[in-house]
Design a protein around this nucleic acid. Structure first.
Length: 945
DNA sequence: TCGAATGAAAA
DNA sequence: TTTTCATTCGA
C-alpha cells in the first residue's frame, strides 16, 4: 500500500488537482513531521500534500481565507508518491487519522488565493527545495513518472459509449424533468424507460443507429477497449481504496503507484520536474499531447511530416464517412491529425501553448532537479515528433538554466530591457486568452481574454473557467503519454519547434520560456533560436498561423454564434415531434415545439458543416485573441497571471481536469449544455467522484486516441443534438395507444411475449416485474408494506413460479408481457424484488405503471372471462376498482390516479394469479405459496380501497 | 454515494 | 447467466 495510497486529510490545492491521488488513500502523514519546504520539494504531482489544518479539509469556496491560513501555517505535509510513500504508508498508519477523500470545490477565487499563497511559499521555499531536492531527486522523478503513467492509465480510460437507451435518456431527460419537476432522476429514468418502450421502433432505430455508430467510431478509436475493465481489478485487492473509486481505478492507480513499471520510470522523468508544483506531470503530457495534436493538425500542412501527410489523405477519405468515423480514424492514427477538424486544432494549439507555458514554468523550476526532468519531458513529447510544441518545450527546458519561473518573472519585471520577455509574455497572454476562448464555449471567454491580460486575478479566474476542457485534455494527454511511451522518442522534437516563428504567439512564448530558463531575456533568444533546430520550421508555422489568424479572428465570434445557431437550428429542424406537441410544454430544447420526425438526416448534414466551421472559427478566435492582447501592461499582468498559474500546479491540473470535463460535457450537448451544465461541472472538482470515476483502461495501449476521442466526442455531440427529441405528449399518446393496444390484445388473447425467444424468461421477468410494480404502488399508497412484504415476496415468488409453470403450460395467455425481456430486466426484477418498492415520483408514467396498466387491462378481461372463482371477497371489488381506475388513467394522467391504478392493477393481477391458480389448481396442487399470493393481493386491494 | 432505467460487452 | 458500466442528478 505504501506507494499506492495516501491518505489525504486535507489536500493541498496543488495536489488536489490530481485525481489520482484521491484514488488511493492509504497512508496518512502527520503534518508535524513534514516541513513545508521538504514537502514541497519532495512533492510529486502524485504526492498528496496534507495541510495540517483540519480546516482545509472543509475547503470550500467560501473558506478561502481559512485555507490560505492553513497553508501559510506550513502545516503542509507531503504525501510521497507511491514509490516514495512507503514511509508514508507507515506513517499514515501511525497517525491513525482516518484517511479521507475529499472532494474539493475548485473555485476560481480559491484558486487565486491559493496561487497567491503558493507563490509566496514557492519563493521562500525555493532555496530549501534545493536542499531537499537531492534527497528526492531521483526518486521523485521516477515516482512522478510512475504516477504520471498511472494517472494516465487510470484517468484516461475512455468511457464506454452510450447505448441507444442512454442516448435517448440523455436527450429526453430534461424534457421529462420539465414535465415532471417533482420527479427525481430515478423517476425520470423510469419515465424515460416507459417512453423508450413506447417509442416507435423507427425512432428507436435512430438512436440505436446512433449508438452503434458512435460505438463503432469509439471502438475504432479505441481498438483495445474493453467494456469491463474490472477484470483488471485483481490488483485492487491491495487497494482497498476502491471504496470511492471504482475498482478498476483503484487497481490501476495502485498498480501504477505501487509497482513502478519500467515505463513509469522512464516516463517519470517527464513529470518529475514539474515539481510537486505540477501536480501531474502526466497531465502536462496530456495537455501537451492534445495541444500537440491540434498543432499537428495545423502544422501538418506546413510541415511535411509523414504523419501529417497521411492525415490529409485520411481527412479526405474520412469526409465521406460519417464524422464520427472520421474522428475515430483520426484518433486511430495517433500521429495523424485530421485536417477536417480545424476547430479542435485551434483549441488544441491554444491549449498546447498553455501547456507549454506551464511546462516551461515547470521546467524551469525543475531545472533544479536537473536534466532528468527535461529528458522526461522530451521523452514524453518526443514521441510526438510532429508536435512542435513538444520540441519547444523541450528546448526551453533544456536551455533553461534557471529553475524557477518566478525568478524569470521577477527579472522581467525588474528589467525593462526584457522586451522580449515581455513580448513573450504577451504572447503567452494571447495564447492563454486564445486558449481560454477556444476552450471555453462560454461567453466568458471573450472577457476572459481581456481579463487575463489585464489582471492576474482575472486571469486566474479565466483559467479556471478554461479549466473545463483541460480535464479532457489531461485524459487525452495521459492516453497520449501511454502511446508515447510506446512511441516515445520516435521523432525528434525539433520538428515541433517549427512553430516558433518570431511572429507567432507560440514563438513568443517559447522565447519567454527560454529566456526564463536561461535567465537571459534578450540575448538568449537569439541563441535559443539557433539552437532550436526547428526554428525555421517554427517560423514557417508561425507565419502560417499568422496568415490564418486574421481570418480566424473574424470568424471566431461568428463561429460561436453560428455554431450555436447551427446547433439550435439543427436541433429544431431535427427534432420535430412525431406528433405535434403542445408548444406549451416547454421542451428544453428547441425540439420541444416540434417534435422531430426525422432527426437523422439533419444530423448528418450538420456534422460535416459544423466541423469546418468550427475549425475556422477557432482559428480566427485564436488570432483575434492574440491580436487583442497586446499591450504591455496587459503583458505584465499576463506574465504575472501566467506565472501564477504556472506556478500553481493546481491551477494547471485543475484546468486540465476542467478541460477534460469540458470536453466531455461539450460532447454531450453543444448549444445549451455549455452554459448550464458546464458551469457547474467546471468548478466542482471531485477527485474521487465522477472525475475520478473516469477509469482508464490500462489495458488500452492506445491512449493516443484520446485526442481522437475528443473529436469523436464533439462529433458525437453534434450528432446527438441532431437526434430527434420527442415531446412528452407524443409519448403520452403513444403510451395510451400502446396501452390500448395491449388491452386489446390482452382481451383478445394475451399478449404473447415473445414466445420465440426465451418467452419463459421474459414471462418470468414480466411477472416479477408486475409484482414488483404492484408493491411499489402499494408503497405509494402507503399501504403497510411490512405485513405485506413477506407475503408479497412469497406471493411474488409463488406467482412467479406459477407463471412459469403456467407459461410452460400455457405459454400465450397468462404472461402477456410486452416485448422480450432483456436480461437486464430480469436482473432488475430480481434486484428490485419486493424490497425495492418503487419510489415513483409521479408514478404517472412510471414504467411500473405502464406494466400495470397493461396487465390490468388484460387481467380484467381474463378474469372476467374466466370468472375466477378463486378470487376472494375482495377480488370483485378489486376488479371494479381496477376498471374505474383504468378509466382514470386513460383519461387523466394524475399521479394519484396512477397510484390507484396501480393498486387496482395489483389487485387485478392478484386476481389473475388466483384465477390461474385456481385453474391450474389441477395441474398444480396449490402450494402454500400460491395461497399466500392470492391472499396477499387481495388484502392489498382491499386496503387500498 | 446510490439508484432508476436499458443495453452491450465481458467474465 | 451474471456483472460492469455508460448518463443524469436528487436525496
Amino acid at each position: 500500500m505504501k506507494g499506492d495510497t495516501k491518505l489525504v486529510e486535507v489536500v493541498d490545492y496543488r495536489s488536489c488537482h490530481s485525481e489520482e491521488l484521491y484514488q488511493v488513500d492509504k497512508g496518512y502523514q502527520e503534518p508535524k513531521k513534514f516541513n513545508k519546504k521538504k514537502g514541497r520539494k519532495q512533492l510529486c504531482r502524485e504526492d498528496l500534500v496534507i495541510l495540517t489544518g483540519s480546516k482545509l479539509t472543509r475547503i470550500q469556496q467560501q473558506d478561502l481565507v481559512a485555507t490560505k491560513a492553513n497553508c501559510r501555517l506550513g502545516c503542509v505535509t507531503v504525501m510521497k508518491g507511491s514509490s516514495r510513500n512507503k514511509d508514508h504508508a507507515t506513517e499514515g498508519e501511525g497517525t491513525g487519522k482516518r484517511p479521507k477523500r475529499k472532494c474539493l470545490q475548485w473555485h476560481p477565487l480559491l484558486a487565486k488565493k491559493l496561487l497567491d499563497f503558493s507563490e509566496e511559499e514557492e519563493e521562500e521555499e525555493e532555496e530549501e527545495d534545493i536542499d531537499k531536492v537531492p534527497l528526492l531527486g531521483p526518486d521523485g522523478l521516477e515516482q512522478d513518472a510512475d504516477e504520471t503513467e498511472d494517472d494516465e492509465s487510470s484517468e484516461q480510460r475512455a468511457r464506454r459509449p452510450m447505448n441507444a437507451f442512454l442516448l435517448f435518456c440523455k436527450r429526453h431527460r430534461s424534457l421529462v424533468r420539465k414535465e415532471h419537476p417533482r420527479l427525481d432522476n430515478r423517476g425520470a429514468t423510469k419515465i424515460l424507460a416507459d417512453w423508450w418502450s413506447v417509442l416507435d421502433p423507427k425512432e428507436k432505430q435512430k438512436y440505436t443507429d446512433m449508438a452503434k455508430e458512435y460505438k463503432d467510431a469509439f471502438m475504432k478509436a479505441n481498438p483495445g477497449y474493453k467494456w469491463c475493465p474490472t477484470t483488471n481489478k485483481p490488483v485492487k485487492t491491495q487497494a482497498s481504496s476502491v471504496t470511492n473509486r471504482k475498482k478498476l481505478w483503484a487497481i490501476a492507480s495502485d498498480s501504477a503507484k505501487d509497482l513502478p513499471s519500467p515505463k513509469k520510470v522512464t516516463k517519470s522523468e517527464e513529470m518529475p520536474q514539474l515539481n510537486f508544483g505540477m501536480a501531474d506531470p502526466t497531465q502536462m503530457g496530456g495537455l501537451s499531447m492534445l495541444l500537440l495534436a491540434g498543432e499537428h493538425a495545423l502544422t501538418a500542412q506546413e510541415v511535411s511530416s509523414s504523419t501529417c501527410q497521411s492525415d490529409a489523405s485520411d481527412s479526405t477519405e474520412a469526409c465521406q464517412k460519417s464524422s464520427l468515423f472520421q474522428f475515430a480514424e483520426i484518433s486511430s492514427n495517433t500521429s495523424q491529425l485530421p485536417s477536417p477538424e480545424p476547430v479542435k486544432h485551434c483549441g488544441k494549439s491554444a491549449l498546447f501553448q498553455l501547456a507549454e507555458m506551464c511546462l516551461a514554468s515547470e521546467g524551469v523550476k525543475v531545472k533544479e532537479s536537473g536534466k532528468t526532468k527535461v529528458e522526461a519531458l522530451e521523452d514524453e513529447e518526443g514521441d510526438v515528433s510532429e508536435d512542435m510544441e513538444v520540441g519547444l518545450e523541450k528546448t526551453t527546458l533544456k536551455d533553461s538554466s534557471k529553475g524557477k519561473v518566478e525568478q524569470l518573472e521577477i527579472e522581467k519585471m525588474q528589467n525593462p530591457d526584457e522586451t522580449k520577455a515581455e513580448e513573450s509574455e504577451t504572447a503567452k497572454c494571447r495564447d492563454f486568452t486564445s486558449l481560454a476562448m477556444e476552450n471555453s464555449p462560454f461567453e466568458r471567454k471573450d472577457n476572459a481574454k481581456d481579463h487575463m491580460c489585464r489582471s492576474p486575478e482575472l486571469f486566474m479566474s479565466d483559467m479556471s473557467i478554461l479549466g473545463l476542457k483541460p480535464e479532457k485534455i489531461k485524459k487525452k494527454k495521459k492516453k497520449n503519454k501511454l502511446d508515447r511511451h510506446t512511441n516515445e522518442k520516435s521523432t525528434p522534437k525539433k520538428s515541433c519547434k517549427k512553430r516558433q516563428s518570431s511572429e507567432s504567439d507560440i514563438e513568443s512564448v517559447m522565447y519567454t520560456i527560454e529566456a526564463v530558463a536561461k535567465g537571459d531575456w534578450g540575448a538568449e533568444r537569439l541563441a535559443d533560436t539557433p539552437r532550436k533546430k526547428n526554428r525555421p520550421v517554427s517560423n514557417v508555422k508561425g507565419n502560417m498561423l499568422d496568415t490564418k489568424s486574421p481570418k480566424k479572428k473574424v470568424k471566431s465570434k461568428e463561429k460561436k454564434t453560428s455554431k450555436e445557431k447551427l446547433m439550435e437550428t439543427t436541433k429544431e429542424s431535427k427534432p420535430p415531434d412525431f406528433l405535434s406537441i403542445e408548444a406549451g410544454k416547454e421542451v428544453p430544447c428547441e425540439a420541444s415545439d416540434n417534435i422531430k420526425v426525422e432527426p437523422l438526416t439533419p444530423t448528418e448534414e450538420v456534422v460535416p458543416q459544423s466541423l469546418p466551421e468550427q475549425v475556422k472559427t477557432e482559428d480566427s478566435d485564436c488570432v483575434k485573441k492574440i491580436e487583442t492582447c497586446g499591450s504591455r501592461k496587459s503583458e505584465r499582468s499576463c506574465k504575472g497571471a501566467l506565472y501564477k498559474t504556472l506556478v500553481s500546479e493546481g491551477m494547471l491540473t485543475s484546468l486540465r481536469a476542467n478541460v477534460d470535463r469540458g470536453k466531455r460535457s461539450s460532447g454531450k450537448g453543444n448549444s445549451s449544455d455549455h452554459e448550464g451544465c458546464w458551469n457547474e461541472e467546471i468548478w466542482a472538482f471531485s477527485p474521487s467522484g465522477t472525475s475520478g470515476n473516469k477509469k482508464l483502461k490500462k489495458t488500452k495501449p492506445k491512449e493516443e486516441f484520446v485526442f481522437g476521442l475528443a473529436k469523436l466526442e464533439e462529433e458525437f455531440a453534434k450528432k446527438f443534438n441532431s437526434l430527434p427529441q420527442y415531446s412528452p405528449i407524443t409519448f403520452d399518446r403513444k403510451n395510451s395507444a400502446v396501452s390500448r393496444k395491449k388491452r386489446k390484445i390482452g382481451s383478445g388473447s394475451c399478449e404473447l411475449p415473445k414466445s420465440s425467444k426465451g418467452s419463459f424468461q421474459s414471462q418470468k421477468k414480466n411477472l416479477f416485474h408486475k409484482i414488483v410494480s404492484k408493491f411499489k404502488h402499494r408503497k405509494k399508497l402507503n399501504v403497510p408494506d411490512t405485513a405485506i412484504l413477506l407475503e408479497d415476496r412469497n406471493s411474488s415468488e409463488s406467482a412467479w413460479k406459477n407463471k412459469i409453470s403456467i407459461s410452460a403450460l400455457n405459454t400465450p395467455e397468462p404472461v402477456t408481457m410486452h416485448e422480450p425481456l432483456v436480461g437486464s430486466q430480469k436482473r432488475k426484477a430480481r434486484k428490485t424484488k419486493i424490497t425495492h418498492l418503487v419510489r415513483t415520483a409521479d408514478g404517472r408514467v412510471s414504467p411500473a405503471a405502464g406494466t400495470l396498466e397493461e396487465k390490468p387491462k388484460e387481467l380484467p378481461q381474463s378474469t372476467l372471462q374466466k370468472s375466477s372463482s378463486a378470487e376472494t371477497d375482495c377480488n370483485s371489488e378489486c376488479s371494479r376498482n381496477t376498471e374505474t381506475e383504468e378509466n382514470h388513467s386513460i383519461t387523466s394522467d394524475m399521479p394519484a390516479v396512477s397510484a390507484f391504478f396501480s393498486l387496482a392493477a395489483l389487485a387485478e393481477v392478484a386476481a389473475m394469479e388466483n384465477v390461474h391458480r385456481s385453474q391450474r389448481a389441477t395441474p398444480l396442487p396449490h402450494d402454500g405459496q400460491p395461497n399466500e399470493m392470492s391472499q396477499a393481493p387481495v388484502l392489498i386491494s382491499c386496503a387500498d380501497q
